[in-house]
């Protein structure tokens, strides 16, 4: 399956500033592995060593957070869009 991975601005230094990357993959995990083959080091910004998505990162398939789907095992169809964004968070005290 040819899928498009959308790279968020803070991770574009890994991809030579490319905002999207096409890979062949049938699950989110496979897509992230292929991305890491192209741009070594990027996957550890997204996943824990055991493969789960890091808590401060969200991964989307066609705009749906994969936490509400099947996590990194979420299957991909031809033409799917995989989005990645780091959390935006903060707070007023300490």
């Amino acid at each position: 399956m040819a899928v498009t991975i959308l790279i968020p601005a803070p991770l574009r230094r890994f991809t030579g500033e490319r905002a999207s990357v096409e890979v062949e993959a049938s699950t989110v995990a496979e897509a992230l592995a292929k991305l890491d083959q192209l741009y070594p080091g990027i996957r550890e910004r997204i996943c824990e060593p055991d493969g789960r998505i890091r808590r401060f990162v969200s991964v989307f398939v066609n705009g749906k957070d994969v936490r509400s789907l099947q996590g990194v095992e979420t299957p991909l169809q031809d033409g799917d869009e995989v989005g990645i964004i780091p959390a935006m968070a903060g707070g007023q005290w300490s």
Partner: peptide
Amino acid sequence: SIAVERFFMDPEEQFRVLREIE
């Protein structure tokens, strides 16, 4: 509750808005 002293953007909405901006 400390929930009033923190923010965490709704990830799907954050993603949707970033796409809209682009």
